[in-house]
Structures are given as structure tokens and as C-alpha cells.
Simulated scan of single mutants.
Amino acid sequence: MMVRVGDLVGRTSHGCDLLFRVIEIKEENGQKTAILYGEDVRLIADAPIHDLVLVDEGEYSKRAKREREKVEKTFRLFKQDYQLIKQRNEYYSTRGYSNDIHYFQLPGKVLHIDGDPLYLRKCLELYEKMNVPVQGVYCKETEMHQKVGQLIDEYRPDILVITGHDAYTKAKGKVTDLKAYRHSRYFVETVREARKKIPSLDQLIIFAGACQSHFEALIHAGANFASSPSRINIHALDPVYVVAKISYTPFMDRVQVWDIVKNTITGEKGLGGIETRGILRTGMPFQLYEEKSQG
């Protein structure tokens, strides 16, 4: 079997429980090792070539269908929440529907910095589907802390997402040791740099982390929401659902953590945070401009 960069594979030692993309193949002392990115979860791993098996189209199609069903279920739940918020805002804006007033809404603007360009594209597609204003930037996890300040100045976001790939390796240290994580220390440093720019937890809302990330360190660094409390894998799209909920929650309301994580794909074992104020602002009047033909 020939494994190449870009192939979809499973690890036989783990019962092919997850699908991975081969990102790089290294050779040392005659032994080949593949660097792997999770296809649907934000996990980075390495494995000897002999431990990998290629995933055929039939198996991939079955797994992809299950993933689509999970994503669609979560999207339906988000739409339900959004409709409830919209109806409540309409009720208050029209004083109980007693006034025929046209209003407009300004949801929170998101800056999404991602260490995986393919995941970033998937996330941007979902943001668009949810009508969340977003700017997406691909950046290696190891370089995020160097660039986040400039990106905040450039895009002036209400919400910042710092994510990519991560992994905890027990052999490298205790669960409390940042050195035992692939990228958590870089996520932590990026959060700290962002907080140097905007210290307030309400003026800039931050989601940070990926699979198995050091949740406590990220929260203490200044993140409002982070992964992963139980050091489990999180879904590639989970950060989008977290910040979309905040983006469409009125700024006078506070979002309870359970209300945020209950409808995500991963749930409370993979995501957590602190009580946070919403971002959405409602204004009026909404003026429709129509171009008049000149003759």
C-alpha cells in the first residue's frame, strides 16, 4: 500500500475510529511517519505508515453522510434559537406589535483565525449560511500570537476565533502541563496578545482552542469560551456555532454557558466558558432605497 500526502486514512491501532488527511510524510532512520489532520475533528496526530489504511470511497461516503446529519441537526437547532430571538426583538421593537416600525439588526462581526485552510473554508461557508458577518484568515498556529494584534487593528472584530489543530500527549507530561500539548501554548499566547489590545471580556469576545486543548489555561489567559474541558476532540464547525449564538444575542442579554454548548456537535465535554454578554444591536428605522429610472 502506498500512502501519499493528501490521502484519506484511518489508524488500524485505533480501529479506524477517525478519518485523517495525510499532511506530511517524514522519514528518519529508515522509518516513515505520517503527520495527520483530522478530517472532521480539530486533531493533529502522527502515525507510522504501516499503521495506516487507505479509506475507500464507499466508507468515506458513509461517514460523510453521518457527519452531514450531525451538522444539519445542529444547524436546525441554531435556526430555532435565532427565530426565537428575532421574534422577541420584533415584539419589543414594535411595542408589542402595536407600531408598524421597520427595524434593522447589527450582529457581531467575527474575525476567524484558523490553522487549517480547508477547515477555514468550511467554517466560512457555515457563517455565510447563518448570515454572520465574518473575516477569515489562515495562519499557522505557531505564528498566530505574532499576527493577532495587527489583525485586530485591521478588522476591528466584536468576536475573535483562534483555532486550528491541537493534541494532548500523555507521554510528554501531565494534563496540567502546557508542554504536553501540540499547540495550546500558542493559542494561550495569542489570547494574551489579543487581551493586550482589548482587555474587556465584553468588548472583544474570544473563542480559543481545538481538539484536546488546555481549557483552563485558555480561560485564564482571557478567553470567554474554549476547548476542551475533558480533553476530547471537538468538531471542526463547533467554534462557528458558539460565536454565531453570541453574534445574534442582544447586547442587553447575557448568554449562559449551557445555552451556548448544549446545541453544539461536541457538547459540554469539549466546550466551555464563562457567562458573556451578547453582541446584537437593533436599530430603526430601516429605510428601503429603490433606484428610480431616469428618462
Rank of each mutant, 00 (worst) to 15 (best):
E154W: 01
E128G: 06
I101Q: 03
L151Q: 03
P157N: 08
D114A: 12
E143L: 13
K122C: 01
G96L: 01
D158G: 06
V137D: 09
G108K: 05
S98N: 11
Q146M: 03
L111T: 05
Q150L: 09
H145T: 06
Q105Y: 13
D153Y: 13
I113R: 12
D114Y: 13
V161Q: 07
V132N: 03
G136L: 02
Q146H: 05
D114N: 15
L126D: 06
T142N: 14
G136P: 10
M130H: 13
I101G: 01
Q146V: 00
H145R: 07
G149W: 04
C123D: 02
E141S: 07
K147I: 01
E141Q: 07
C123S: 04
I159M: 11
P133Q: 15
L120F: 10
E154K: 13
R156L: 11
I113D: 08
Y155P: 00
D114R: 14
D114V: 11
S98D: 06
H112M: 01
V134L: 03
G149Q: 14
I101A: 01
V134Y: 11
L126W: 05
E141K: 07
Y127G: 08
D114S: 12
L118I: 12
L126A: 10
Q105S: 14
S98H: 12
Y103W: 14
H112K: 02
L151W: 12
Y97K: 11
C139P: 06
E125I: 04
Y155I: 01
V134A: 11
P117T: 09
D158V: 03
E143C: 10
K147N: 08
